[in-house]
């Protein structure tokens, strides 16, 4: 069995996630109580791609309304399972604004930017095909606190830049673990 490791950008995402996690475990950050969520999501655009996401916000900054995030999604799981779908990776970074950050249900809007790349399979035959595309999307959604340490979210949005595998409508659902809450 061939194991597909993340691409170079996938590794960068992993290091960013580890960096955020290390802050969450430091004594200083416990006092500032940042919101650090790590979770999984499924995104539907051209294809359905599962991914991982890390997001970060500070209660001391504008009452915890802004949050930044980084995400990596891929079709590699489906293609490893025998599907002939395109092998595609997406990395995205974004900033979100949560309208009720302390409420049980918080609507939010977010803007994401990133990069998508699909595998051309045979670089000689498909030399004329551009496998890369810049991502830029605006999302509207809601986050619900299921448990003190567990949140679910869903959003729909519009992808402003479209390309071969980037469609205008983007939607995702996710489940996220609140690192700081779980330690209390």
């Amino acid at each position: 069995m061939i194991v597909h490791l993340p691409s170079g950008r996938g590794w960068i995402m992993l290091f960013v996630a580890l960096g955020i996690c290390s802050e969450a475990t430091s004594p200083a950050s416990a006092q500032q109580a940042p919101t650090i969520l790590i979770g999984a999501f499924v995104e539907k655009n051209y294809s359905t791609q599962p991914g991982i996401q890390v997001s970060y916000g500070r209660a001391s900054l504008l009452d915890g309304r802004p949050r930044i995030s980084a995400a990596y999604s891929t079709t590699r799981l489906a293609t490893a399972g025998g599907s002939n779908a395109l092998v595609e990776d997406r990395i995205q970074a974004g900033v979100g604004w949560y309208f009720r950050p302390v409420g049980r249900l918080s609507p939010y809007m977010a803007a994401n930017a990133g990069y998508a790349r699909f595998d051309r399979e045979d670089a000689e035959i498909f030399e004329l095909l551009d496998g890369g595309a810049v991502l830029l999307s605006l999302l509207f959604g809601a986050e619900v606190k299921l448990l003190p340490f567990l949140r679910a979210n869903g959003n729909v949005g519009y992808s402003a830049l479209q390309s071969s595998t980037v469609y205008p409508l983007v939607a995702s659902i996710g489940l996220h673990y609140h690192l700081n809450q779980s330690r209390r």
């Binding site: 699909f118 051309r120 045979d122 095909l129 071969s164």
Partner: peptide, 18 residues
């Protein structure tokens, strides 16, 4: 054709794979 205004060239790759 690689710059087709109607059928995205990625169509050929999908057929090649599938």
């Amino acid at each position: 054709t690689a710059n087709d205004p109607t059928a995205d060239p990625v169509s050929a790759l999908l057929i090649y794979k599938g």
